[in-house]
Design a protein around this nucleic acid. Structure first.
Length: 461
RNA sequence: GGUACUCUGGCAGAACGGUUAUGCGUGAGCCUGCAAAGCUUAUACAAGGGGGUUCGACUCCCUCGGGUACCUCCA
């Protein structure tokens, strides 16, 4: 599998001979998560599910930044504590992402629970002479790390001249960034240098090394983290360990609205909760995977609606397979195999989920075609089900479950309807159909049989 | 201002030098008691503008222009 690496700017082969170790920058827990967060995390969710499907072990570490100015500000505004705020939004996070059918990461380390590791990390940096203490805190000395700027392709002299940061005269160099900030505002921790809290970038360096070792396979996050966050992580980590940090840097493009980045400051955010209520997890996932992960995607109701149409096709396909009982069977082994290979090849080639989805929908379409032609035999159905299920699991698409008692009720109603139809009592027959519709059961009248499907309830329809 | 990315049919979106996929939408048809769903089929001057390299360019190079992101916290 090849993945485009932001650092080298070429496609790098992912080493799958052993467990694949992934560090994904998570969210700062001071507010609700939005669709932009969802996209990044869904992309990595599909990546890990794909690799797991191949039998490859995955270690996925995703942090929570739970100490940060924004959290503290929010706590003050709400007359609460930072811990209460972060706890609340971590709970909120899991609610959102469980709802999106995202598999839990191996571990979700929090910055506040790794203060010791962070302090040890800083101590090493100071020992090596790449960090220094000043009146306001401990700073990383950018000039001590010759590779600074290699990820974001920025030159340090240009950064300085274009810098709009208010210069802190305590810093030796305006580019230096804090790894420890002195502060008396809670939360604070004692450190060898003074009471305070860690800077933002240091937590990821410390925790990734702790959980994944000095060199791991993939470091991911949104494109907006390239600078300064990831650039600074590289500087800290490589200064500390003297070895290459992540092997592949994988960055996910932004979700935009009307071409503008979705962000809190712009105020154009769509919260996961809101979109989930209106569209459900499957459509959101299809939407997030509809373009190449590295490119931006524009959020719009139209695109969600398009994905709703596609999702209905998947549901139809699913139930055609469930109800398949035709005697005829076509020779379809080759077709299934080919689409399965197309699917995998697409993902192997820089994780092209759009093309993988094409293969998936082709299989859906082929199935529906067979069903329409009354050629979907039971053997065919079993064969297709297996591959379709594999793809669905990787993509994280879920067909709503149905209980046995529901089934019995539906079958009974359909039987009644059939009798009315035979007697040409269509009004009564239609009443039953309406009743089923209310239960979100849709009927499909084939030539000599009627099948049903349970449709996912989509509010925005 | 700097850096990176980007510009394909009504919309979305691929193919990283060799027939401009595919999906949505739209039109027509099949199926149906009627629907719905599904299927069939049709549809589109499609590559920002201008140069160049090449037998051949969406794909490479140059140039002009538009857009976005980052340069401050950001998935």
């Amino acid at each position: 599998m090849k993945i485009q690496d932001t650092l080298s700017n070429i496609e790098q082969e992912l080493d799958i001979s052993k467990n694949v170790k992934i560090y994904l920058c998570g969210v700062t827990v001071y507010d609700e998560s939005h669709i932009g967060h969802a996209r990044t995390i869904i992309v990595f969710d599909v990546l890990r599910k794909y690799l797991e499907n191949k039998g490859i072990g995955i270690e996925l570490i995703q942090n929570f930044t739970d100490v940060d100015d924004k959290i503290i500000n929010r706590a003050q505004a709400e007359n609460s504590t930072a811990e209460e705020i972060s706890t609340k939004y971590i709970e909120n996070y899991f609610k959102d992402f469980d709802g999106l059918n995202v598999k839990r990461a191996t571990n979700y380390p929090k910055a506040t629970e790794h203060i010791d590791d962070i302090i040890k990390f800083i101590e090493k940096l100071i020992e090596k002479g790449t960090a220094y203490t000043s009146k306001n805190g401990v700073y990383f000395s950018v000039s001590k790390f010759p590779g600074y700027g290699k990820l974001s392709k920025k030159k340090t002299d240009e950064l300085q001249s274009g810098s709009r940061i208010a210069v802190d005269e305590q810093k030796k160099d305006p580019l230096d960034f804090a790894v420890w900030k002195f502060s008396d505002t809670e939360p604070t921790w004692d450190s060898p240098w003074g009471k305070g809290r860690p800077g933002w970038h240091i937590e990821c360096s410390a925790m990734s090394v702790k959980y994944l070792g000095e060199n791991f396979d993939i470091h991911g996050g949104g494109r907006d983290l390239i600078f300064p966050h990831h650039e600074n992580e590289i500087a800290q980590s490589e200064s500390c360990t003297n070895s290459q940090f992540a092997k592949i840097w994988m960055h996910v493009g932004m979700v935009t609205i009307d071409g503008e980045k979705m962000s809190k400051s712009t105020g154009n955010v769509k919260s996961i909760k809101h979109v989930l209520e209106n569209w459900g997890p499957n459509i959101i996932r299809l939407f997030c995977l509809s373009g190449h992960y590295s490119k931006p995607i524009d959020y719009s109701e139209e695109l969600l609606k398009e994905n709703l149409t596609k999702w209905r096709q998947v549901e139809t396909c699913h139930y055609e397979l469930v109800h398949a009982n035709n005697e005829n069977s076509e020779e379809i082994t080759q077709m299934i195999k080919k689409l399965g290979i197309d699917f995998d090849n697409s993902l192997d080639n820089d994780f092209n989920t759009h093309l993988a989805l094409s293969a998936f929908f082709q299989l859906v379409k082929e199935t529906n075609k067979l069903a329409a032609d009354e050629k979907l035999g039971k053997n065919n159905a079993d064969e297709i089900k297996k591959e379709l299920k594999r793809m669905q699991e990787i993509l994280g698409l879920l067909i709503p479950e149905i209980t046995d008692s529901e089934k019995e009720e539906i079958d009974e109603l359909i039987k009644n309807r059939e009798e009315y139809r035979k007697e040409k009592q269509f009004e009564k027959a239609d009443k039953i159909r309406d009743k089923l519709n209310e239960m979100n059961i849709e009927l499909i009248d084939h030539k000599n049989r009627t099948i049903w499907m349970k449709k996912e309830r989509i509010k925005s329809q």
